[in-house]
């Protein structure tokens, strides 16, 4: 039992990071109406970008974040029109095709990463990697590693920035209008194509930045992508599709599940637990934890 507060603390610190992935992921879904299967692969590429940039330049991964964001946002911005083309085709079932397309991308990315980076698992060093804080209260002993704390602060900052962007700017208004109704938003003068490209770029950039942090906190490997795709999906479904306010809670829950399994059970069983929780929640309340999804 003495480990429980520690497990919960780790869960909160880890869950914070998943919030950033899940928010960007649901934004893309809101605007483009597709699920991007490649989300985990963007995280993986971001983690590798952080790892190699750190190796070559010697700069701290936290300083590299804006740079990684810019590169990946540009890549996302340039790829989005292809996805748009698939989605707006009039043959077959465009939504299904969009899904198949991103799935193909995910397989391709994974193959490329395995070819280029190999099967090894690494970790990106940072100034925060070493230190940690100790708290002793009520007979419990807590360790907070500073890298995880820095990760949480990053996550809060990104969440606040995305919130500002969505609620206070004209761009955010356009994004929300597009999510509500694409045709009407177009009639009101929202440039759908442009906005979708920007949102996709934003999402890819944020995912890659989060990948850099995951590389610092956990590890970097070419096969890591799939796990995070499933995590992103888990958070979004648990929160209720399209219900952004539920995302942080679902992400924290995921972080807890992961850290509890890490401490009490075999970490290899995490996915099993994740799926079991998902299954039960979908049976009881198909619209997410709060019943507010679509």
């Amino acid at each position: 039992m003495e480990l429980l507060p520690q497990a919960l603390m780790d869960g909160i610190l880890l869950g914070g990071i998943y919030i950033t992935i899940a928010i960007a992921f649901s934004l893309t879904y809101g605007v483009m109406h597709i699920i991007d299967f490649a989300v985990g692969e963007w995280i993986m590429f971001g983690a590798f970008a952080g790892y190699y940039l750190n190796k070559w330049t010697g700069l701290d991964p936290f300083l590299l974040l804006p740079f990684v964001f810019l590169i990946f946002a540009l890549i996302g911005y340039l790829i989005q029109p292809v996805i748009h083309r698939v989605l707006s085709g009039n043959k077959g079932n465009p939504l299904l095709m969009g899904l198949v397309f991103t799935f193909g991308l995910a397989i391709m990315f994974q193959g490329i990463a395995l070819t280029v980076f190999g099967f090894y698992s690494n970790s990106t060093p940072s100034v925060f990697s070493e230190g940690s804080f100790f708290i002793e209260k009520f007979g419990f002993f807590l360790t907070i590693s500073s890298i995880r704390l820095a990760g949480l602060i990053y996550a809060l900052a990104i969440t606040a920035a995305l919130h500002y962007l969505l609620k206070k700017t004209n761009f955010g208004l356009g994004v929300r209008a597009l999510a509500l109704n694409r045709d009407s938003a177009g009639l009101m003068g929202v440039n759908g194509k442009q906005t979708a490209s920007l949102v996709y770029g934003l999402y890819v950039g944020v995912s890659a930045m989060t990948g850099v942090l995951i590389g610092c906190i956990l590890s970097v490997s070419a096969q890591m992508g799939t796990e995070y795709t499933i995590f992103a999906f888990f958070v979004v479904v648990l929160a209720g599709m399209g219900y952004l306010a539920g995302v942080p809670w679902a992400a924290l829950l995921l972080g807890m599940v992961q850290s509890i399994f890490l401490i009490y059970f075999n970490p290899g069983h995490t996915l099993l637990a994740v799926f079991a929780i998902l299954y039960i929640i979908l049976l009881i309340s198909p619209r997410g934890l709060f019943g507010r999804g679509v």
Binding site: G104, L105, G111, L114, T115
Partner: peptide, 11 residues
Amino acid sequence: LYLIILGAVIA
């Protein structure tokens, strides 16, 4: 390479 080709054929 097979993985890459598989993904590319899908896309």
